[in-house]
């Protein structure tokens, strides 16, 4: 499906995105929402990386920071060899066509006063000097590609169903032949019966055009269907990053394990199995716990988890986990160093 030997299309290293909190009458800067707090991963050309995790864990923020719709607080986002985070506005404008986004709510992301043809040709007007005929030709081509009838070109968004509106959003994202598309919950707003249509379309387009996807979703069974590898996020950090089959067969991180166990299979005999029920609520990203971000709810937490933050480490070939349960498997030095850290901490 993708060639692991070549350099990844997308390389994210130590990405942080903090949102400042201002409070009091003087609107003083009193803290930060650490929406994304040190996230690193690669995506190979032609690959689909799934990004899952609970609401508010920072998935959308990662997607937006990757395309520099936000100015990241720290870290590098290298797409095709260029660090997006450092590009000048003009260089960024030239880079834009290669990276696009499909949004969760097709209704809200489409201008209700523009026709379908206007919406799809908007990026063409901005980034090409094509004349109207050439643009319309491309609009028709894109409508064919996403399965929208050409006769609909002059209709307005409200005249379409949810699934059709999502197709419009996808057509617009494809207009400039992007290589990389961030799909942020592209099916969450759609009825179950329509979701499969959109997912099949995304897969067909990937095959035809060699697209690379970051597929953000909270629907784990859909992620299992579409993704090659999956990153599980919790409170601004990646808990586990593993190949799809390995993750679903045996999640390593305790959060990934709880998450998968909580999913209800549409099958009464499977859905009634015992599951891991977590206690407590997700902490606020403005006040993450001192130790591991999952330590307040983790059924397996031990003393060290409440003191230090585990880093994402490769614990099996291709499988990356941020959890001290796996620290011993990474070689003795890692554990020793960690021990020293704890001791230094105690003496301070």
């Amino acid at each position: 499906m993708f060639d692991a030997a070549t350099a990844p299309l997308v390389q994210v290293d130590g990405l942080k995105m903090y949102f400042p909190i201002y409070s009091g009458i003087l609107r003083r800067h009193t803290g930060n929402v650490k929406a994304v707090d040190g996230v690193s991963f690669d995506i190979q050309a032609g690959e689909t990386l799934g990004l899952v995790g609970e609401s508010g864990c920072g998935k959308s923020t990662v997607g937006r920071a990757l395309l520099r719709l936000y100015e990241p607080t720290a870290g590098a986002v290298v797409i095709e060899g260029e660090d997006i985070a450092k590009l000048t506005p003009e260089a960024l404008r030239r880079k834009r066509p290669t990276m696009q986004m499909v949004f969760q709510d097709p209704q809200a992301s489409l201008n209700p006063r523009m026709t379908l043809a206007d919406i799809i040709s908007e990026p063409l007007i901005e980034h090409t000097n094509w004349n109207a005929d050439r643009r319309l030709e491309r609009v028709y081509e894109l409508m064919d590609a996403v399965g929208l009838n050409r006769r609909f070109a002059n209709r307005f968004p409200h005249e379409f169903s949810g699934g059709q509106r999502q197709r419009i959003g996808i057509a617009r994202a494809l207009a400039l032949n992007p290589k990389f598309i961030v799909c942020d919950e592209p099916i969450a707003a759609l009825d179950v019966s329509i979701q499969a249509q959109v997912v099949n379309l995304l897969e067909d387009l990937q095959e035809k055009l060699g697209l690379t996807y970051l597929f953000i979703s909270h629907d784990l069974s859909m992620v299992r269907h579409i993704a090659d590898r999956v990153a599980v996020m919790y409170l601004g950090r990646i808990a586990e990053l593993s190949p799809r089959d390995a993750l679903f067969a045996k999640p390593l991180h305790p959060y990934a394990e709880a998450l998968l166990s909580a999913v209800n299979e549409p099958d009464p005999s499977l859905a009634r199995r015992p599951r891991i029920i977590l206690k407590g609520d997700v902490p606020s990203p403005a006040r993450p716990p001192k130790g591991c971000n999952f330590s307040t709810r983790c059924p397996k937490a031990f003393a060290r988890c409440h003191e230090e933050k585990p880093e994402l480490q490769e614990v099996e070939p291709g499988r990356h986990v941020a959890c001290f349960l796996y620290a011993s498997q990474t070689g003795s030095t890692g554990t020793l160093e960690a021990k020293e850290h704890i001791q230094q901490g105690e003496y301070k």
């Binding site: 859909m222 299992r224 679903f248 999913v263 299979e265 499977l270």
Partner: peptide, 13 residues
């Protein structure tokens, strides 16, 4: 239409 979490992974939904 619903992909399964544990069963065989279908090529197309």
């Amino acid at each position: 239409t619903i992909p399964s979490l544990t069963g065989v992974r279908e090529k197309r939904l």
